[in-house]
Amino acid sequence: MNDFATSLSRSASGMQAQAMRLRFTSENIANADTPGYHRKTSSFEEVVESGRPTGQVRLGPVELDRRELTRVYDPGHPMADENGYYDGSNVDLVVEIADAREAQRSYEANLRMFDQARQMSSALLDLLRR
């Protein structure tokens, strides 16, 4: 039974990490037109307990993308400098949409694994009851 619990916890950690990744992607898309906004990024880390890897993952610390902000020409904008430019964001909507799709597919794969492990443990319990 321990293997089933391990499978469930690994799949659940993957779903949680992908959900957070999707949240950051959504925030980036929502702030694509916000002047001075830096894209949020994060990477996955393996969970280690008592010095041993558990097979679970989590999202690492949130980092801001260091790429330069786009310069937008709009002399009427309140944040424009004397030349009519202001700093836009460094969010690329195509990249964000691709990241969102990847996170969604990974979430769904983890969900299928979770459901398979749950069905297998349920079937095993039914066999043992007989």
Rank of each mutant, 00 (worst) to 15 (best):
L93E: 08
A5T: 14
S11F: 03
Y86N: 00
A17T: 06
M79S: 03
I29R: 00
S121H: 06
P61A: 05
M1V: 15
R52Y: 11
E45P: 03
A100G: 14
E49M: 14
L111H: 04
D126M: 01
A80G: 06
P75R: 05
R39P: 02
T34E: 13
R66K: 09
A98M: 14
D3F: 15
D3S: 12
E63Q: 13
A123C: 01
L59Q: 07
D115R: 04
A98D: 12
S26E: 11
A12L: 13
E96W: 12
R39Q: 06
D81Q: 08
S122N: 09
P53N: 08
P61G: 15
T25H: 00
M20C: 06
P78A: 07
R112E: 06
H77P: 02
A123D: 09
M113H: 12
G55E: 08
Y37K: 00
F4C: 01
A19Y: 05
S50E: 15
E27H: 09
M113E: 01
S7Y: 10
E45K: 01
L59Y: 06
Q56M: 15
T70W: 07
S7E: 13
L125D: 03
S42P: 04
L125S: 06
M20A: 08
A103V: 09
T54H: 03
H77R: 01
T25C: 05
R39K: 10
A30N: 11
V72R: 00
D87F: 07
A19Q: 02
R52G: 12
A98E: 14
A12D: 08
V57D: 00
T25R: 00
R112S: 10
R39E: 02
F44L: 15
T70A: 11
Q116H: 05
H38I: 02
R10K: 01
H38K: 03
N110M: 02
N2L: 15
G88I: 04
S13L: 13
Y73L: 10
R118E: 10
N2C: 06
L125W: 08
A98I: 10
S42Y: 11
Q56G: 11
Q56Y: 08
A19V: 04
M20N: 09
R23H: 12
E27V: 14
G14Y: 03
A19T: 14
D115K: 00
L59A: 02
R118A: 02
A103M: 11
V57H: 01
T6C: 10
M120F: 15
S42T: 09
Q104T: 13
N90Y: 11
Y107K: 00
A5E: 14
A32L: 09
D115H: 08
T34D: 05
S9E: 04
Q104D: 09
R21P: 04
S42N: 11
S26Y: 12
M15C: 07
S106Y: 05
E82L: 07
N83S: 15
R10D: 06
A123S: 12
T54I: 05
L59C: 01
S122G: 11
Q18K: 00
E108R: 01
D74Q: 15
R101M: 10
T41V: 15
R129T: 14
D74R: 09
E27G: 08
V48I: 15
L59K: 02
N28T: 07
Q18E: 14
G36V: 15
R112V: 13
S106L: 06
S13R: 00
